Computed example of a mutant assay.
Amino acid sequence: MIEGKFGDDEELFFEIELIAADGLELPVDAMLDTGFSDWLAIDKQDLEGLDWPYVGERNMRIAKGEANFDIYVGKVRIDGEEFDIPVHVGDGVPEILIGRQWLKSRRLVVDMQSNVLTLGGS
């Protein structure tokens, strides 16, 4: 189980690690976006240096309308486990985002009154 933190506007942040193709591990704060139905989304500039393999593109509906994303296979570590997942890469993604797919195998606990935010095993 990993403990998260609340952002200034009550966003839900969790520390994850992006793992580059050469094995370099980059800890980052990722925001949980329950409106994002996939695994991970990052801005194109955040992709530099990771050297993840490109696999195609996908058009998706987002809050601002339609957007085209390049899809890469990325490696991340969450709660000590490594995963190879599809990563949506686009222009203007304001935060590194983790989406609802993580909630299929992890339990989210949010208790703002007690300042408790966790993401972990069921």
Rank of each mutant, 00 (worst) to 15 (best):
W102V: 05
D70M: 01
D22S: 10
P53K: 09
D91T: 08
I85M: 07
L47E: 00
I2D: 07
G65R: 08
E66F: 15
V89R: 04
Q45W: 07
E57R: 12
P53R: 08
D8K: 14
F13I: 07
E11T: 07
F83C: 02
V76C: 05
D8W: 10
D111G: 06
L108Q: 11
G49M: 00
E11C: 09
P53M: 10
G121I: 12
D33P: 04
I78Y: 12
V110Y: 09
M60G: 02
G74L: 02
Q45Y: 12
E10P: 02
V109S: 10
I42H: 13
L117F: 07
V110H: 13
D33Y: 11
D8V: 10
L117T: 05
W52Y: 00
G99F: 14
K75V: 14
P86M: 01
G80A: 09
E10F: 15
V73N: 01
L117P: 05
L47C: 02
N59C: 10
E66L: 14
K44T: 07
L108G: 11
E57M: 15
D84T: 03
N115K: 13
Y72P: 02
E57C: 11
G92T: 09
P27E: 00
G35E: 06
E17H: 13
N115E: 09
E95Y: 12
M1H: 15
V93A: 01
D51H: 08
P27A: 06
D111S: 13
S114I: 00
K5D: 09
I78N: 05
F83E: 08
P94K: 11
V87F: 01
V87E: 02
K104T: 08
Y72R: 04
D84Q: 06
L32D: 01
E25L: 10
F6V: 09
S37H: 12
G23D: 00
A21K: 12
L40I: 11
M60C: 14
M112G: 06
V110G: 10
I2M: 14
H88P: 01
E66M: 15
Q45M: 09
R100G: 07
G7A: 07
A30S: 08
D33F: 06
T118D: 11
S105H: 03
G35C: 02
F83S: 08
M112L: 06
G49P: 09
L12C: 06
L18M: 11
M60T: 10
L24C: 09
P27Y: 04
P53G: 10
G99H: 12
M60L: 15
G74S: 09
I78M: 06
F36D: 03
V55K: 09
S114R: 15
I71L: 14
G90C: 03
D46C: 03
G90R: 13
G120C: 03
W52V: 00
W52F: 01
G120R: 04
H88A: 13
D70C: 02
L40H: 11
A41L: 04
M1S: 15
L103P: 03
L117K: 03
N68A: 15
V87I: 13
R100Q: 11
E95R: 13
D22L: 04
R58C: 14
V109G: 00
K104S: 11
L47F: 01
I96Y: 03
A21L: 04
